[in-house]
């Protein structure tokens, strides 16, 4: 049975790993304005991650703070969905990932804002405004790339095809959670469907639905991501920064 700690941890890990991937774009974006935008979104995700991990640590009651949770757990202890740990790929893959993530996070945080847990409600209320911007930004690029040139269309369709299977895990039922993600799938489809259509992209058929992130069974990518993220912190046990 998963606990409230697991729920806060899962959401915090989603945001943390997403921030880590987005941060990799710094100084590499297709245009300077996009460098600013991607850093902004990374900062939003990191901010939400810190609030959620701090709260998770308090729920656990074992004295772990945000850094202990971020830096001193191994990949098998991370609870993020597989979607966020996938490599950035090209800009189309990054935008497909961001569209699906934000189209899940926005209804999730909105629902959390009205939940009985006051701390989660406050985090949801703050984060949902940011998610709305992330979703707008990703949708704008998916439309531009889908309906831009022949090459951008090809890349955007390939990105959607590649990432689509990982969206299903986001909505796996979680009975007893403050918000059951299974109830958010309708919002996701209602938003993503028309965006793909406007972008002249084909919605992939449902089928293969990789999962396991919520149970700590990840892709091969996460261990590398964490090795890089944690290397300095772990090299100096007990140091403050």
């Amino acid at each position: 049975m998963r606990s409230p700690f697991d729920f806060a941890l899962a959401l915090g890990d989603d945001a943390l790993v997403a921030a880590q991937r987005l941060g990799e774009w710094t100084s590499r974006a297709p245009e300077m304005e996009e460098d600013v935008a991607l850093a902004n979104i990374a900062l939003d995700q990191l901010g939400a991650a810190r609030l959620l991990l701090t709260y998770a640590g308090e729920l656990e009651g074992a004295g772990r703070d945000e850094d202990a949770l971020a830096y001193l757990r191994d990949d098998r202890e991370f609870r993020n969905c597989l979607l966020v740990e996938l490599p950035n790929g090209d800009f189309a893959v990054t935008m497909a990932k961001l569209l699906f993530l934000s189209a899940y996070q926005l209804p999730l945080y909105s629902a959390l804002a009205g939940c009985a847990d006051e701390r989660l409600a406050a985090i949801g209320a703050k984060a949902r405004k940011e998610s709305a911007y992330h979703r707008d930004h990703a949708a704008l690029w998916v439309r531009r790339l889908g309906d831009g040139t022949a090459e951008s269309h090809r890349r955007m369709q390939a990105a959607v095809d590649q990432v689509w299977p990982y969206a299903h895990e986001l909505f796996a039922p979680w009975p007893g959670a403050p918000v059951d993600p299974a109830g958010l799938r309708g919002d996701f489809d209602a938003y993503v469907g028309p965006v793909l259509a406007e972008a002249t992209l084909t919605r992939p058929a449902d089928g293969w639905a990789p999962a396991g992130g919520r149970d700590g069974v990840h892709t091969e990518h996460l261990s590398y991501l964490l090795a890089e993220m944690q290397v300095l912190h772990r090299a100096h046990p007990g140091a403050t920064w």
């Binding site: 943390l16 921030a19 880590q20 941060g23 990799e24 710094t26 100084s27 300077m32 304005e33 460098d35 600013v36 850093a39 902004n40 990374a42 900062l43 990191l46 901010g47 991650a49 810190r50 991990l53 945000e66 850094d67 971020a70 830096y71 890089e228 993220m229 290397v231 300095l232 912190h233 100096h236 140091a239 920064w241």
Partner: peptide
């Protein structure tokens, strides 16, 4: 050093700083 910043707070500060530099460039 963004990916390896030794605490989440330092990571956030560094990300914001590098973002500022992009803004200065623009």
């Amino acid at each position: 050093w963004i990916s390896r910043a030794p605490s989440l707070k330092r990571k956030a500060i560094l990300l914001a700083k590098v973002q500022d530099e992009a803004g200065h460039g623009l």
